[in-house]
Design a protein around this nucleic acid. Structure first.
Lengths: 362, 362
DNA sequence: CTGAATTGGGAAAGCGCATTCCCACTGCAT
DNA sequence: ATGCAGTGGGAATGCGCTTTCCCAATTCAG
């Protein structure tokens, strides 16, 4: 038994499909009360569920929002996804999920798939990259996105615009002040510590990582400090762990020189919390303690990681809110608020949050 | 400019839409090479993207998999979602996400929405509940699910069957051996500790929670121990925290009696990791230490929480695999493997993993 | 060399719904 | 009584694609 159709309902109610459609799905014209009741009852008794595909085809709009993330199990993306989901519900839409591992080629595929499904809007949450090996893929992604927008789609990108995408009608960028916040973090960190700094970053070319590194170095410079050395690794826990091992060896070497531990040897800034946790795990595995032997700070303030001990110094980012804003930015009529370009960045703010992991004993 | 259509492509290639369709979308009939090339080129130059809605309508199948979770930001669900996403990709489908907070009423809505979109299958990941206040909603959910199945939909439920759902063709349950594993955990815990046990559980009626509690008590009984007292709270970190506060007060009272701390006073079993972390945070906030003043174990072995210190004893569950299996179970032709009922539970195994948080000094 | 079987393309009928256009009917003013 | 706007329902068209059916051109066996 296939699902029942509008026509069946109409027949059972003894009216035309047109009328049935009018009563069942909000139309401008409201049929008479008695007829409406009859139709509704018929629909009920048949267990009628409108075919969204057909509806979408007919009025060319699908009620779908496409969300692109690197990895849904990464708490960073999961938090954003929650915000997106939340906003989608406000708009009475459903979210279509695509995970890409951050590869522009896959992102392009995802956009195409969303376009095929005629998603009303697309939210891209992953970090953009400008690595040369991604150049072509990025160009294709940009082209795909352009086409999508030109066909009336709306897109919001969290962080940086897609490389090469022309600022089109319906193309929004939710700017995240990574650089400023990293600078502020460096400033605060420099105020409480006058030893060396090291940065654990993601691969070169990853905007989010690069911005945070740049901001951090600026903050250091402004505080009259030497720039931090930069260790690059993959943008996840494993990358942090590996870098942590390197640093642990170095710290232990230094301690051997001095003969004894005399307070932290290093202040580590990992460009995101997950990497910071990885690095911390590595230090611990090597017998080092935080903040005794080294202090460490992350970025994002991932909720699940707040119970980590020692409490991780970080920069709070309203991830869920970011997802919500991005999604709202793509809602039809959303740009009514500001009368600027559709591409105007939304304003997001974060907050430096110093905790135990960077507390150096007085 | 609206997206270009198959007809346009066909016209530009100088062929009929039928032919264009045949070459562009895998059909049984393969048109001649020269024609195919012409069509493909036309499609290319127009940037043709097939309209999945129309395709779906025409062949009544959408390439969509619906996923229902309580909260996508909860690492438990995020991990399952990753598995689902993974399996979906294998099947070249996209996943449609719905979050419900665990309310059967919302789950019913979600199922209806998926049905409207003609999702090929639905994976329900949230824990089922048998609370009396959910009775009616559960019944409606079951009815909705039944209808969906009867119309050819396939569904997989993680954990327990939906209350009241009749075992239909296409209805799969991925059984998670919560009870057995909790029993095993209790056994191992009882071997290393002969003081009191306390369980921090979720609300009564939540199957996952109830199963784990029951199993744990059984294990205790089998080891000749008195049943544990049960503290019930919400099934998340906050619930764990609250219960933790209660226990902290009790422990401190006990210590006051004895005058001094003389090893752990309590072994706590929280029915999931997130609650365990909450409880641990509460104890810590109250100045208690783990495992010195109390030992604690969780359940799930959430990846993000593995760096928690002291390392949390728990039961490893292959969450991602569970998501994958559930999704695969709904793939067409998936029940070919076993020649039993379509409703046959798949086999999932977990593993008790004792770590530092339950280590009591010898 | 003829008739049958095969191939390859097109015409057309839906898939389920929204919507425009049309028509019969009512109620009112003239 | 006649004309008019206004009302409420139905017929028909189209959204973009798949698929069946049909037909002309080949090919091959006899």
């Amino acid at each position: 038994m296939a699902a029942s159709t509008l026509t069946e309902v109409a027949r059972l109610a003894g009216v035309s499909p047109a009328t049935a459609s009018r009563v069942l799905n909000g139309s401008a014209r409201k049929p008479g009360k008695d007829i409406a009741d009859r139709v509704r009852q018929a629909a009920d008794s048949l267990g009628y569920i409108p075919n969204a595909q057909a509806q979408g085809l007919a009025k060319s709009s699908s009620g779908l929002i496409g969300l692109i993330v690197h990895d849904i199990a990464d708490p960073y993306f999961a938090a954003i996804a929650r915000g997106v989901q939340d906003a989608a519900r406000e708009q009475r839409k459903m979210v279509l999920l695509a995970t890409t591992g951050g590869a522009p080629a896959e992102e392009k595929e995802a956009v195409a798939a969303f376009a095929a499904r005629r998603a009303d809007s697309i939210v891209i949450a992953g970090s953009r990259s400008s690595r040369t090996e991604d150049r072509d893929d990025n160009a294709e992604l940009a082209a795909e996105l352009d086409r999508y927008c030109r066909n009336g789609g709306r897109v919001a990108v969290v962080g940086h615009p897609v490389v090469g995408a022309s600022a089109l009608e319906g193309y929004h960028v939710i700017a995240v002040p990574n650089e400023e916040l990293a600078r502020a973090l460096a400033t605060e960190l420099a105020a409480g510590w006058n030893g060396d700094f090291v940065v654990i970053g993601g691969p070169e070319g990853l905007f989010t990582s690069d911005d945070r590194i740049r901001g951090f170095q600026e903050g250091l410079a402004k505080a009259g400090r030497a720039p931090a050395e930069i260790l690059r690794n993959s943008f996840n826990r494993a990358g942090g762990y590996e870098a942590g091992l390197t640093l642990a060896a170095r710290i232990k070497g230094g301690q051997a020189d001095t003969g004894e531990a005399t307070g932290p040897r290093l202040c580590i800034f990992a460009v995101n919390d997950v990497m910071a946790i990885g690095a911390a795990a590595a230090l611990r595995a090597e017998g080092l303690r935080i903040p005794r032997d080294a202090t460490i700070a992350g970025f994002d303030d991932i909720e699940t990681l707040r119970d980590f001990r020692p409490a991780l110094s970080t920069v709070r980012l309203p991830l869920e809110e970011i997802g919500r804003l991005a999604t709202r930015a793509t809602a039809p009529g959303a740009d009514g608020g500001d009368d600027h370009d559709a591409g105007l960045p939304q304003q997001i703010t974060g907050e430096v949050t110093l905790r135990r992991s960077t507390e150096v004993a007085a």
